[in-house]
């Protein structure tokens, strides 16, 4: 695997392979000596055109634990000609010897452009492009789900998929790259994916690969009895015009309030990609409960990104 641009172009087999590598990576992280020599001599560049401390440090930690050299490059794109400046920046970084470029950009398709326009020969890993995809987030979510489900069933997670698990994604689907990456990845892994949003935040989409979409969260919870609910962050910075009257109204209809959390089946997991707007899309009762995977998602994120770097930079050969 040369690049990781979207989960849409990952096969189920490849995804499971990455999740299994992630599991191995996670196991090495409980050792005293956590650093692996795997990517010694390789240079990994974090190219962030959009602020995201969480994702950037997660990638940085992943690369460093594999002994790669890390260059952090954050640039607020110039308003004049972002396309060309992206090209120039990428070529400059490659001239400095970058083997992998991890790119975060506010424009959908930016990672695709870097990988396929012949500008650079480095591997490109998409760390979020506009409202398109955020594939490592979906991989870490899938990893987290798989681990918890395996644990509940008393099995080992290696090699298994998410067959027939019911995952409900709730909130601002329209602007969410996390939702797009998860819909495509989780359904590929056999899960049934449900989406719930006010109708203004549901993109025009046919049902496949979404099992069903709802506008009423209470109804959705009763009807589906999900194995996991994934609450999305309200992306006010990506919203144009009026999508709903107020945050208060959004919370009352689509937030995981204490009342709704209590109405969930007792085994339902609660996920959130972070950063959370507590009291808006998720209540503290839900976020801090034992069924919340939110902290675990962060820890798993480093292991999954180690696996992705390993698969892109050493060709996945063991």
């Amino acid at each position: 695997m040369k690049h990781l641009l979207s989960t849409a172009d990952l096969s189920a087999e490849k995804a499971i392979e990455i999740l299994d590598t992630s599991l191995e990576m996670l196991q090495t992280q409980s050792r005293e000596q956590r650093k692996l020599p795997t990517l010694r001599g390789k240079t990994v560049v974090n190219l962030f055109f959009e602020d995201s401390t969480r994702t950037r440090i997660s990638f940085e930690a992943a690369a460093k634990r594999l002994s790669a050299d890390v260059i952090n490059f954050s640039s607020q794109g110039s308003s004049v000609s972002k396309g060309e400046s992206l090209k120039d920046t990428a070529q400059t970084l490659e001239a400095m010897g970058a083997d992998a470029v991890i790119v975060r950009h506010s424009s959908s398709g930016a990672a695709h452009l870097l990988a396929n326009r012949g500008w650079i020969s480095a591997s490109v890993i998409n760390a979020g492009d506009g409202t398109h995809e955020h594939p490592t987030q979906a991989l870490l979510d899938a990893f987290t789900l798989r681990s918890r489900f395996a644990e509940l069933a008393g099995k080992t997670p290696a090699g298994i998929d998410l067959k027939d698990k019911k995952v409900m994604i709730v909130g601002d689907i329209l602007h969410s790259r996390v939702a797009r990456s998860n819909i495509s990845l989780l359904s590929k892994l056999g899960a049934k994916v449900y989406v719930v949003a006010p109708s203004t935040l549901l993109p025009i989409a046919d049902t496949s690969p979404i099992t069903k979409s709802f506008v009423n969260l209470d109804l959705a919870i009763r009807e589906v009895e999900p194995d996991a609910v994934m609450m999305l962050r309200l992306q006010s910075e990506r919203m144009r015009g009026t999508f709903f009257p107020s945050a208060k109204e959004f919370t009352s209809g689509w937030g995981l309030t204490a009342g709704r959390f209590a109405a969930l089946p007792k085994h339902t997991l609660v996920m959130h990609p972070g950063p959370m707007n507590r009291g808006v899309e998720i209540s503290s009762v839900a976020a801090d409960s034992e069924r919340s995977t939110i902290i675990e998602q962060v820890a798993n994120g480093v292991a999954v990104r180690m696996a992705v770097l390993y698969h892109t930079l050493s060709g996945g050969a063991k």
Partner: peptide, 19 residues
Amino acid sequence: TEGAQANASINAAKLGLSG
């Protein structure tokens, strides 16, 4: 069509281009 990038269809939805 403020900020619109592509036909509001399943393709635009998947590509994350505002419809």
